[in-house]
Design a protein around this nucleic acid. Structure first.
Lengths: 161, 161
DNA sequence: GTTCGTGCAAAAACTTTGCATTATC
DNA sequence: GATAATGCAAAGTTTTTGCACGAAC
């Protein structure tokens, strides 16, 4: 909120991400195909903070070169493994993805009226979570914190659940 | 953990819950059918802290009176509306339910090795969540806090991710 | 007797898989 | 040239729905 970065040349981001994917694939003896490149480009081009597999399927319906549905699903999984994407499951039946891209960890506020997702980060929250986990002898790897409710705009419009 | 209650007569619980369901259904001009009664009984009998729709489908495969899959899904939804059940989506593709039954709100630690779910409650966490929501002009209705990791037992057995 | 719920099977929504073909290393 | 990835369609999972019949109010 304090600092707003205008991404007028997203290609820089794509380049870094493709490098990262390449390094991951080499480590795994897997291949950097044109589809995987194209997908990653499309993901960056969309510049959506959150997207689904289906968003990508739609993007490729009338586009050349095509990337099939199966490849999209398979590639999303690879990119999650590679640490390029993060996978979330908000209330719904489908998975939601976002670029990790050196972004710090954050959690989500989800408006149940307009489906808007607001990201937040709280150092206090992170510490408290670690504290709770330790108290139960638990070794945390990651967490998912979702707060559902009504956002400011919707509340203003009278949507009070 | 401090107090351990032996439920030797779970029928008491069923009675209360059935009353609660009845009140809800009357308010909505809906009907308390034998299937809805039977389902609620079965849910209490299972005394699982967390169960899925499919768990219930299996329970009714060779049992009289039967309750169909469609009715199970429809009834679970009704019971969530009635405040009798809580619905969760932990990492997997299916939904997980638990009885609310006057239990205080709590969150979950999920062992990614043995799938065990540990419940916890932290007043501090609740307050912090409200604080974060307010900071973003957000009016929270509920939240879902999941911490994934390795539980004490699994860690002891060498499962360190 | 009206309205709502049930059971069944079919469909829907999202995701995964088998297999022959093609591209990458 | 060996291995891995792709595209397609088919199948898998979990959940929902349409409709004729039956139960609850």
């Amino acid at each position: 909120m304090a600092k707003s970065t205008i991404r007028s040349a997203p290609e820089g981001g794509v380049y870094e991400l493709t490098k990262k994917l390449e390094r991951y694939l080499q480590r795994k003896s897997q291949k950097l195909t044109s589809q995987r490149r194209t997908l990653l480009e499309k993901i960056v081009e969309m510049h959506k903070t959150h997207f689904t597999a289906d968003d990508l399927v739609l993007e490729f319906i009338n586009t050349r070169p095509r990337v099939s549905k199966a490849t999209i699903y398979r590639s999303l999984s690879v990119m999650v493994q590679a640490g390029i994407l993060e996978e979330h499951q908000f209330g719904d039946s489908y998975k939601v993805y976002e670029l990790s891209e050196g972004r710090p960890h954050h959690d989500h506020l989800i408006c149940t009226n307009c489906q808007k997702i607001i990201e937040f980060f709280s150092e206090e929250m992170e510490e408290l979570q670690d504290k709770v986990a330790k108290k139960h002898g638990f070794h945390p790897t990651h967490h998912s914190q979702k707060i559902f409710g009504i956002c400011q705009q919707c509340w203003g419009k009278g949507a009070r659940g």
